[in-house]
Simulated assay, not measured.
Amino acid sequence: MAGRTPIPVARAMRNVAANIDLARRQQRITVELLAERANLSVPTVRKLLNEGAGTFENFLRVARILGMLENVVGATDPLRTPIGRARAEQDVPKRVRG
């Protein structure tokens, strides 16, 4: 059930959006060109860049165009976390049932 966005999540959304927009500007790519290359509408890209709002797929499309996709994938690698490293040697179940 979706509810209000937690403050740390909203802050992260804004920070990620600002980082993506900075990368876009550093590469001298217009919003229009980014939208075209990502096969997205300009309003969708603007919303992603300004608010961090949008789908996960759209975020990944934009990250790919800006050369950030590998970093996004790496950032979600569980082996980069203390728990992930500690459990790497243990038998990890394929599914966790409640």
Rank of each mutant, 00 (worst) to 15 (best):
V42H: 03
E32I: 09
K94W: 15
G98F: 14
L33H: 10
T44Q: 07
F59R: 00
F59N: 00
V92R: 10
G84Q: 02
L48N: 00
R25D: 08
I7Y: 15
R11F: 08
I7T: 11
E89D: 15
A53R: 09
N50S: 13
S41E: 09
N39T: 13
R25T: 15
L69S: 06
R87M: 13
A88R: 06
R14F: 07
L66Q: 00
E36S: 10
E51P: 06
N39P: 04
L33N: 09
T76W: 12
G74P: 03
L33R: 12
A75G: 12
N39W: 11
V45M: 02
G67R: 03
P8T: 05
A10I: 07
N50W: 14
I20D: 00
L34S: 01
D21W: 00
L60Q: 04
I7N: 12
P93V: 02
E57Q: 13
D21M: 04
K47C: 10
P6R: 04
L79H: 10
A88S: 08
R95D: 15
M13E: 08
M13Q: 11
Q90D: 14
R97H: 08
L69A: 12
N39Y: 14
Q26G: 06
R14E: 12
V42G: 01
V72K: 04
A38M: 00
R80H: 12
R61Y: 03
A2E: 15
E89R: 14
A53C: 09
R87E: 13
R14I: 10
L22F: 14
T30N: 04
V62P: 00
V31F: 06
L34T: 01
R37Y: 05
L79M: 09
L49D: 00
M1Q: 12
V9L: 10
D77K: 02
E70N: 11
R46H: 12
V92D: 11
A38E: 01
M1V: 12
F59S: 02
P82D: 04
D21N: 11
R24Y: 04
L66G: 00
T76G: 15
D21I: 02
N50R: 11
L33S: 14
P8N: 09
G3I: 06
P82V: 00
R61F: 03
R37V: 07
T5H: 05
L40F: 03
S41G: 12
V96R: 07
G54A: 02
A86C: 06
L79A: 13
T81I: 05
A12K: 13
V73S: 07
G3P: 02
R85H: 09
A18W: 06
A63C: 14
Q90E: 15
L66F: 02
T44P: 03
G54S: 02
R85S: 10
T76V: 10
E57C: 10
